[in-house]
Amino acid sequence: MYTLNHEQNRITPIAVKTFSELGFTERKHLQEWLAHQPDALGEELLIIQKEFDGFDDTRERLDLLALDKDGNLVIIENKLDDSGRDVVWQAIKYASYCASLTKLQIVEIFQQYLKRYEPNQEQEATQLIADFLDAPDLDEVKLNLGNSQRLMLVAANFRKEVTSTALWLLGQGISVQCFKVTPYVLGTQLLLNIDQIIPTPEATELMIGINAKEAEEKTTEVVVKSRHNVRLAYWEKALEVFHNSHCSLFNNISPGKDHWLSAGSGVSGCPYNLIFLQKEIRVELWIAKAQGEENTFIFDYLESNKSSIETAFGDELEWLRLEGKKSCRIQYSHQAEGFNKERWSEWIAWHLEHMIRLEQAFKKPLQAAAQSRKTHSLPMGQML
């Protein structure tokens, strides 16, 4: 790594240091850096445990355990200035131990992590995992399928026997990545560079293309297809009932395969949604304009009229401002055996009744909120 002097048209090397020289340790420093910034390893990862020791009949601990965006477990082993000879064998052992972990066990492991390291986290492990995997709930995803466990090895230097073994494992279809971490000193500032050396990013893309068919076979395609067919059938029946009712919201809406069905509310970016899940059904107003501040403005306006809106609806609603996210949501849910076709007429009747009530409760307040957002002439708490 070099500094560039534009005026002199010269480059100057930055001093390379070892972690030992700088007084850094594996567990106290390198491990913590990666636990709090896992995307430094080149992708989105959800850290679910540190120093994991939940292996039967052994006292061994793996450094970091994570989930990737496909629901695969990722075993991250950290070394400092030297990878050592046995790091690959160590990581493989941990992967074999983790291969038998069930979805329930993974959730429990993450919940223990949250309790110990993030006590202020309000959301449960199940919801955080579902959010990370962009799923409506945990029933929609599969975790730790088959031999899908991945290995990430992190060190300042890798011995030849380590890189040779890693390359051989890659050839056998085992997901192994080696990351070289190098500390630098620039004046009083410390810098850290992280390079993926095995496989190179270009080789990774090539391998992904070559193994695409095999990867597809390992996914939950059959499960997803089945769920899609169930949802499509439900929405077909539901829309038939809606079209024969005095609720006109969904008159021009076609059935789909998603767990949701949207209809316009008359305010752009704020649709009404019908939600159909395996264990829950609900109706909701989704506030999802392009700008996050618009969404929070409308949500806050509506919430300031919470009492009158809930009185008009006839029950208490869930007000989800969703801090840190762009959209907001106001919903009413009901526990249901969604995929039990014998009770579909019951769930459809529930959807129809509560969507009618939701629209009636929000129609005027939502228009007033949108107008207030445009003109700022209406005080919060006053409806048209």
Rank of each mutant, 00 (worst) to 15 (best):
F55T: 02
K103Q: 15
D131Y: 07
Q49H: 13
E118W: 08
K142V: 13
Q149N: 12
S96K: 02
Q105Y: 04
R61Q: 11
P119G: 15
E51A: 12
A156Q: 15
N72D: 15
I92T: 10
L80G: 00
P136C: 14
F52E: 07
A135S: 14
G171L: 09
N157T: 14
L104K: 13
E51H: 01
I75Q: 00
V162K: 02
V74G: 01
I106K: 04
I48H: 07
L41I: 03
E118V: 04
L64C: 05
L169S: 08
I174K: 01
T165I: 03
L114G: 02
L65C: 07
V88W: 00
D68E: 10
K69L: 13
A95R: 02
N72P: 02
S96F: 02
Y113I: 07
D53M: 08
S175A: 14
E60R: 15
Q177R: 14
R59N: 13
I92Q: 09
L45Q: 00
D82E: 11
V154T: 07
N78H: 02
T102N: 05
L101W: 14
Q105K: 13
Q177G: 03
S83C: 08
T58F: 05
R150I: 04
N147W: 10
N120G: 09
L114C: 00
L133K: 02
I92L: 15
I174L: 08
L169R: 09
A66W: 03
A66E: 10
L67C: 07
D56Q: 13
F55L: 01
N72K: 12
W89H: 14
L73M: 06
Q177K: 10
L104E: 14
S100Q: 11
S175Q: 13
D134Y: 07
N78F: 01
S164I: 03
G71P: 03
D131C: 10
I106G: 01
G84V: 01
V162G: 03
T102K: 05
D63V: 05
N120C: 06
C98E: 07
N144V: 04
V162W: 00
V162D: 00
L114F: 07
K50A: 13
Q172C: 11
I76H: 05
P136H: 10
L101G: 05
L101Y: 14
L46N: 11
S96M: 09
K142S: 13
D139R: 08
D86R: 06
Q49V: 02
L128I: 09
L62Q: 06
E118Y: 10
L65A: 08
L153P: 02
R61G: 11
D137Y: 08
L133H: 08
E43Y: 04
N72F: 03
E140S: 11
A125F: 03
Q105S: 11
K103T: 12
T165G: 00
V141W: 12
E44K: 14
A135V: 09
G42M: 04
L80Q: 01
D134V: 09
E122Y: 08
A135K: 08
E44R: 15
Q123S: 15
D131L: 14
V176S: 04
G146D: 11
L138W: 05
D139E: 15
I106T: 09
L170G: 08
L114S: 08
G54K: 12
E122K: 13
G42T: 02
E124F: 04
L41M: 04
